[in-house]
Amino acid sequence: MISDFELAALTLSFKVAIWATLLSLPVAILVAHVMARRTFAGKTALEVLLHAPLVVPPVVIGYILLVTLAPNTAFGAWLESIGLSPAFKWQGAALASGLMAFPLMVRAIRQAFEAEPKTYREVALTLGASPWRTFWRISLPLALPGILSATALGFARAVGEFGATITFVANIPGLTQTLPLALYSAAQSPGGEAAAARLALLCLVPAIGSLAVSEWLSRRARRKRGLA
C-alpha cells in the first residue's frame, strides 16, 4: 500500500516539520508579542527583516544558510566541532523550514495579540497580577485560537518547504529527502510519473490534516468562551 521509500519520506517530513514548528513557535510568540505591544526605534526595520522570508526567493534563504553554516565557514566549523552542524542533516532541513514558516506564524500570532481588548490585561494588573502572570494567564490563553492556527499554518508551510531545504541540505534519500524533495526526484526520473503522483497525494495528508486539527482546536477554544 505504501512503500518503504514513501514511508521514509513521509516520516522524515513529519519529523522535520514538527521540529521546525516547535523551534519557531516560542520565538514567534515572543516576537509577535513585542511587535504587538511595544514601540521602539527600528521597529519598521525589524518588521521588514521579519517578513523577508516571505518575499525573498526560498533558494536565497537556503543559500544564505549554506554560506553561513556550512562546515567550510568559520561558524559552521565551530558548530561541527561541538557536534551541532546542521548542514546536510535533517536538523538543517528543520532549520530551513522553520525559518520559512516563521514570518507566517509571527503574522498570525501578532494579529491575535492585537485583537485582545486591553481592558482584560489592565484589569488583571489592577487585581495585583504581575505583567508576567498577566501574559501567561490572560494574553496567551486569549490568543490561543490565533496561536493554534498560526501553528497549523507554520506546520503546513514547513511540510511544503522545498527551495531553502534543497539548497541548504541537498536531496539525500533517508537523510534530508522530505516529501517535496522526493516528489521532485520522482518527477525528474524517467518513468517516475506514478510514483510522483502518489507522493503528491501524500503531501496533502500533513497539510490538510494540520489545518483540520487546528480548526477543530480553535473552534473548541472559541466555543468555550461563547464566541462560536
Binding site: T119, V123, A124, T126, L144, R225
Partner: peptide
C-alpha cells in the same frame, strides 16, 4: 498599587 478597577464593561476574563 493595590487599587482595583471595575471598568464599565466588567471585563470578566472570557476564557
Amino acid at each position: 498599587r493595590m487599587i482595583a478597577l471595575v471598568p464599565q464593561d466588567s471585563a470578566l476574563f472570557p476564557h
